[in-house]
């Protein structure tokens, strides 16, 4: 089906998969990234991406798809951090840094031990959206549907706890479940986005479109929809630039998103 669509559009298969994959990621990154921006969770996102190597290593060790290993690793980190005061007396960024770097180091050590597998570290660091397979595209589609359904059902609750957590709790919101649910969607997102733009650039796909959309948004929903649009546009622009001038695809998408952010800064802020 994809092949015939690619023929109709007159573009190679791999490019169509890249376009669809990038847009699929942007669809989830929009609302997710808004919450990351509002809740100041950029460093949490970085921690999830840093732990990815450990996830890849464990995945290879247990003979499961590395992507699943990454998502599971993210889920473990989410559960550790969702519990309050896991290490009393430490600031949150200290704790995140501790988790991020120790898991990264442990992952690299683990991968070095596995002599029989050759892991292309470069591909994990920078991703390869042009090498996206049909089954990976399917995973992205599935994650989109489930992730968006979950985010829609948690939307009011997440907003309430973003504004004031105790107030939300007194009003009957299940704060702990919401926090955990959000972190799990984020963990799944990281596992998928890593394939496309790599560990180093995954968080940028969350925060740049959301930050760009802030300028013109007057409501949370407008900002989320705006972030999706910026992300989709950045994917298209980045891939076009990559095809025209043979630039690396993932970084080109991030550069396009950053350029859109700069353009948005020219508008006066609303709301």
């Amino acid at each position: 089906m994809l092949e015939s669509l690619a023929q109709v559009l007159g573009m190679p298969d791999f490019l169509l998969r890249a376009v669809l994959g990038g847009m699929g990621i942007a669809l989830l990154a929009g609302p997710l990234g808004c919450f990351v921006v509002w809740r100041r969770m950029a460093y949490f996102g970085e921690t999830l991406t840093h732990s990815a190597f450990l996830g890849v290593g464990l995945g290879l060790l247990l003979h499961v798809e590395p992507m699943i290993g990454v998502a599971a690793m993210g889920a473990v980190i989410a559960v550790i951090l969702a519990r309050r005061h896991p290490a009393e007396g430490l600031a949150e960024d200290t704790l995140l840094g501790l988790l991020a770097h120790s898991s990264l180091a442990l992952g690299l050590v683990l991968l070095a031990f596995m002599e029989d597998v050759r892991v292309d570290l470069f591909a994990y660091l920078f991703g390869d959206i042009l090498a996206l397979s049909a089954s990976e595209l399917m995973w992205i589609g599935l994650a989109d549907v489930l992730g968006l359904l979950l985010l829609v059902s948690m939307w009011q609750g997440l907003l309430a706890m973003t504004v004031h957590e105790s107030l939300a709790a007194v009003e009957g919101r299940r704060v702990m479940a919401l926090r955990l649910g959000f972190m799990l969607v984020l963990a799944v997102f990281v596992a998928l986005a890593m394939k496309l733009v790599g560990i180093l650039l995954t968080v940028s796909m969350l925060i740049i479109p959301a930050a760009a959309a802030r300028r013109l948004a007057r409501t949370p929903l407008q900002m989320a929809v705006g972030a999706v649009l910026v992300g989709v546009l950045a994917t298209g622009l980045g891939l076009a630039v990559s095809m025209l001038w043979d630039t690396p695809a993932g970084p080109s998408m991030v550069v396009a998103a950053a350029a859109l952010f700069v353009v948005m800064m020219l508008f006066p802020r609303r709301g």
Partner: peptide, 11 residues
Amino acid sequence: RFAVPPSLPMD
């Protein structure tokens, strides 16, 4: 204590 993050557009 109540402060809305400035990044959150909300009326």
